[in-house]
Design a protein around this nucleic acid. Sequence first.
DNA 1: ATCTATTTTTAGATTTGTCTAAATTTAATT
DNA 2: AATTAAATTTAGACAAATCTAAAAATAGAT
Lengths: 231, 231
Amino acid sequence: MSNKNVFLKKYFLMTRSEENYLKTIFHLGGGDSNSITTNAIAEQMETKPSSVTDMAKKLSEKGLVDYVRYQGVSLTDAGVKTALSIIRKHRLWEVFLVQKLDFTWDEVHEVAEQLEHIKSEKLIDKIDELLDFPKYDPHGDPIPTKDGKFQERDKKLLSEMPINSQGVCVGVKDSSVPFLKFLDKNNIALGNSIKVVDKEDFDHSLHILMNGKELRISHQIASNLYVKKND
Amino acid sequence: MSNKNVFLKKYFLMTRSEENYLKTIFHLGGGDSNSITTNAIAEQMETKPSSVTDMAKKLSEKGLVDYVRYQGVSLTDAGVKTALSIIRKHRLWEVFLVQKLDFTWDEVHEVAEQLEHIKSEKLIDKIDELLDFPKYDPHGDPIPTKDGKFQERDKKLLSEMPINSQGVCVGVKDSSVPFLKFLDKNNIALGNSIKVVDKEDFDHSLHILMNGKELRISHQIASNLYVKKND
DNA sequence: ATCTATTTTTAGATTTGTCTAAATTTAATT
DNA sequence: AATTAAATTTAGACAAATCTAAAAATAGAT
């Protein structure tokens, strides 16, 4: 193997496992020098803390995380950049699956978990182009740009909207399969218009108009739906 | 882990490596109880014969190949079926990359090698549908159907066509990147009409009309281009 | 401030897929 | 049929990623 490849292997080639750790650390808030505990990572990834420790050392060696024993790990700039590129791929594939292949939004995650690890810059750029450079994925989460920038949309939880306020459904907080299936079954989809008609003090349930149709929504649902408030 | 999953793991879940071995054995002609030597497989996969032996035992355990020590391996019916399903995925992804993402035919192989291992029946069926159920990949190779059937096209090498015969370019024998790039550069593509005007006895080069334009073709090129002869 | 309870790490083992080097089997040649 | 060359397998090692069980460090409660 040439020197060049040794360099490439050590600093650029990421295993699927390494990529998954970086992505998880990012999702747990490990950017901005924010330390995440090995326990938290292990729980999120359904693995053991000792395995996380091993990987923390490895990623630290590669300069992707800062790791201090007994303190946890945080992402370096390089680590954030890599995490964002994986999240970008994941979310672009989700849009592709929904828009081009008629997947439902509860089906996309599992397949995107695989597709996000495909190594080809041209591939993901062309998918981006085919989809006309979408800004949000099917759950309303923002898609990072190629250079790792992305902006959270100005949104709030439906449960926090005042009576008589209006808006558009733009995302979900809980993106688990059961919740997404529930929303599908009740015709609640991104883009739907929402008006809060009344709020029940007793159980915090809501009476809303969705696309003009009356609907009763429990607090549990309302506190997992994001709405972009109309001005 | 439940009993059901043990069953699934042992008999259905294929690792990427296992899938690559099955695919290679198939391409080397290991169907129809045809034994392929460990050496031949090792050479094709750029690995060592001892590694092939290890994998032969494993695949044999799973009932995907018949393996006799010092004799080689051949695919069982289950092995052929699995190999064809991987080849189907590979070729469908190749069509997708060329038709939907403007990849050139020399770029598709490497990416398809990764995409062929994505586990989702729905995904590949939807890609098939999106592409309108293509029968051939960008190199002219046939795409197996879902139930593992596929028919080789009636074709012959350009070098074997008699003078004055006509046909259409339908495939390549050598699908290496340099050859495909050469064809691109010289505007030789699948679907082009071909008429053999003259054959040179001295060096076996050909004088042909391709899409009506005169062209001189060396024997090396002509013996790697497949043509479907007109009746 | 000390003592627990919890968290985290270490040490050693396991699995998968690979390798090298040595041993074995097969095939080829005389 | 014996010998030699080539192919193939075995045995043992290694790297990656994981686990369990034991040891070490930290944090919380009194």
